[in-house]
Simulated assay, not measured.
Amino acid sequence: MTKKNNIGLYFGTFNPVHIGHLAIANYVVENSDLDQIWMVVTPHNPHKKKNTLLDDYQRLHMVHLATDDYDKIKVSNIEFGLPQPSYTVHTLAHLSEKYPDINFTLIMGEDNLKSLHKWKNYKVLLEDYSIIVYPRVSSGKIPEQFINHPKITSVPAPIIEISSTMIRQGIATGKDLRYFMHYQVQNYVEEMNFYK
């Protein structure tokens, strides 16, 4: 019997993708039994007016620019073809059906774990998938039911407090934030005049 591949799914709008996202993905894939991480670019939610959110394919392109030279991180646009808004439980079911030979694991920040009980069908999610949690500075407590849960593993990844919002605001006010993004992403952002 062939061994199933273990793939971690790291969801985000990645607007823009920055070194915090990349460092977390890099840390998790190198310090777990995952074979790869797929960065799943979340499409624009049509129910929200978000003039700061770049076009889906431009954000996808930036994640490609940042990760194409590293075999352990791949980019996924799976949600682009799914009904909106995207619910993680639906995306995971769709992926599991499409790739029956892969074990999928969800990667999330501690801030998301604190609100996981509000997610659509979160119990189904926990029955069928494992979750790797990385630390985030956030308020509130982790609900009792998720502490020592057999499907939830915490990793001591470095806490990186960089946000895409901070980068967008910085660029809009003329700051040079080249070291907060992969150099190819930074060049692309500049070339395309994004977030100005």
Rank of each mutant, 00 (worst) to 15 (best):
G170F: 08
V41T: 14
D55Q: 13
Y129K: 00
N5S: 01
P158Q: 07
D101L: 00
R168E: 07
Y57A: 04
L65R: 11
Y27A: 06
Y57M: 10
I131A: 12
I171R: 06
I78Q: 03
F104K: 00
L65V: 05
I37L: 07
F104H: 00
D71H: 01
M192V: 05
K3R: 13
P135R: 05
T52Q: 09
K98I: 09
N121W: 02
L126M: 10
Y134M: 10
P150S: 13
P156N: 15
L116N: 09
K120L: 14
G20T: 05
P43L: 04
Y99L: 11
P150V: 11
G20M: 01
I162L: 15
K175M: 12
A25P: 06
H21K: 04
G170H: 09
H61W: 09
G8Q: 02
K50F: 05
V28P: 02
I132C: 00
H149Y: 07
K120C: 11
V133Y: 05
L53R: 06
S154V: 03
A25T: 14
I162R: 05
L177P: 01
Y179R: 06
H117P: 01
V155Y: 06
T105S: 00
V29N: 06
E190Q: 14
V189S: 07
T153Q: 13
I24M: 11
T42R: 01
F14R: 03
S130M: 03
N193Q: 15
G8E: 01
V41M: 03
Y122Q: 06
H64Q: 13
Q184V: 02
H21F: 07
K72I: 13
P16W: 08
L65D: 03
K196I: 11
A157D: 03
V17Q: 05
I73L: 15
A23R: 15
H94R: 12
N148M: 03
I171G: 02
P85S: 04
G109D: 12
H117Q: 12
K120P: 01
L126P: 00
N187Q: 14
V137T: 15
I167W: 10
I160M: 14
I19C: 11
L116F: 12
K120N: 13
I73A: 05
F194R: 02
S163D: 10
H182D: 15
F11R: 01
K4A: 00
N45L: 11
D55N: 15
Q84L: 12
K141C: 04
D69K: 11
G140F: 09
F146W: 08
P143G: 09
F194I: 13
I37G: 01
Y87I: 10
V124S: 11
K3Q: 14
H149W: 05
I24E: 08
K74E: 11
Y195S: 04
P83L: 09
V75Q: 00
Y188N: 05
D56C: 10
K72L: 12
N26Y: 11
Y10K: 05
L126R: 01
W38Q: 14
H117I: 04
A93C: 02
K123W: 02
N51L: 14
N31Y: 04
P85M: 07
V155S: 04
E161W: 02
Y188I: 10
A25I: 13
T88C: 07
P135F: 10
L54V: 05
P156S: 12
L82G: 05
K196E: 13
I160P: 07
G12Q: 09
T105L: 00
E144I: 10
V28L: 15
D111K: 06
G170L: 02
D111T: 04
R178T: 13
Y134H: 11
K49C: 06
D55H: 13
P143C: 08
